[in-house]
């Protein structure tokens, strides 16, 4: 095995292209090293991307934020601007693993792993985040909701890797939230999860919304019906009921060691409901400047 430490995106892309299938990206390593340890993968080459320009930076861009692919969960959590603008995304990212994992794990890695239970992904999809992909032909952008194509499968082609995640600008009267269910209080993989992002109209009703659900299907799903259920409402009971129904309908989970179909379907609706209420409270607070 070889350990490579490219210093430019072109160099990284070149190494990946030349070693297709045999090379693996090392960002935080919190999934990669586990997979290597279990014998699940035996890469011939490790490409450590932490030394690329800007890869560990959080920068303001077009009113939004660009999060480098090697920014750790803890680092993101320390960024006041990110917390204020996208609290749901930040809290989702902070739920990945323990404090120790937080010191290393990244949103980009969480995304590239392609798992349906990845904590940061529903929040990113709800936020309409966009992944920046570097490759042999230069950079391209891909909405996070289109990035994962199946369990463990992504749109990344030969020589491509994610270099950053862009969290777009948002109006003042808006916010987001993410909740997951795990059997313990920490250290588990989500059994079901929900990310909700809302924007309020001047009258306090929901003008637009995005609801994404995790761990209830082969990949994280953006549920338009769930968003439609709450748009135009102030989360009154009928809207909440419709949201829960839409989420339950969109869930197509499996029975496994972590949960049953019945449990996941029920709980994902509960989580969406609760996350929507948190997002609503935050958005109202942002709109009025007062805690609700």
């Amino acid at each position: 095995m070889q350990y490579m430490k490219p210093s430019t995106a072109t160099e990284a892309s070149d190494i990946l292209a030349r070693n297709e299938g045999a090379a693996r990206i090392l960002g935080g390593g919190t999934d990669l090293l586990v997979q290597m340890r279990s014998g699940m993968i035996e890469p011939e080459m490790i490409v450590d991307i932490k030394h690329l320009d800007g890869i560990t930076d959080i920068t303001a861009e077009d009113g939004g934020l660009r999060i480098g692919a090697a920014v750790s969960g803890q680092r993101l959590g320390e960024h006041e601007g990110a917390r204020a603008m996208w609290p749901g995304v930040v809290e989702a990212c902070e739920l990945i693993g323990s404090t120790q994992i937080q010191g290393r794990c990244t949103m980009a890695g969480n995304l590239c792993n392609g798992g349906p239970a990845a904590d940061s992904v529903p929040a990113m999809i709800a936020a309409a985040a966009v992944a920046r992909i570097e490759g042999p032909k230069g950079a391209r952008d891909c909405p996070v909701e289109e990035f994962v194509t199946g369990p463990g499968k992504t749109v990344l082609g030969k020589g491509e890797f994610v270099s950053s995640i862009f969290l777009p600008a948002r109006p003042k009267a808006a916010s987001d939230a993410y909740l997951r269910f795990i059997p313990r209080t920490e250290m588990d993989i989500a059994v079901a999860s929900a990310g909700v992002n809302i924007v309020l109209a001047d009258d306090g009703t929901i003008k637009s919304a995005r609801v994404a659900l995790g761990a209830v299907g082969p990949k994280v799903v953006l549920v338009a019906d769930a968003a439609d259920a709450i748009i135009g409402s102030k989360l009154e009971d009928p809207a909440i009921t419709a949201l829960v129904r839409a989420c339950e309908a969109a869930a197509s989970p499996i029975d496994d060691k972590r949960g049953t179909v019945e449990f996941r379907t029920t709980v994902v609706g509960v989580l969406a409901k609760r996350a929507a209420r948190i997002a609503m409270d935050r958005a109202q607070e942002n709109a009025t400047g007062e805690k609700t």
């Binding site: 059997p183 209080t185 920490e186």
Partner: peptide, 14 residues
């Protein structure tokens, strides 16, 4: 579930 991830012993926050 041969690992501490899915064999869930109590953690401090539990």
């Amino acid at each position: 579930n041969a690992g501490f991830l899915d064999y869930r012993i109590p953690v401090a926050s539990d």
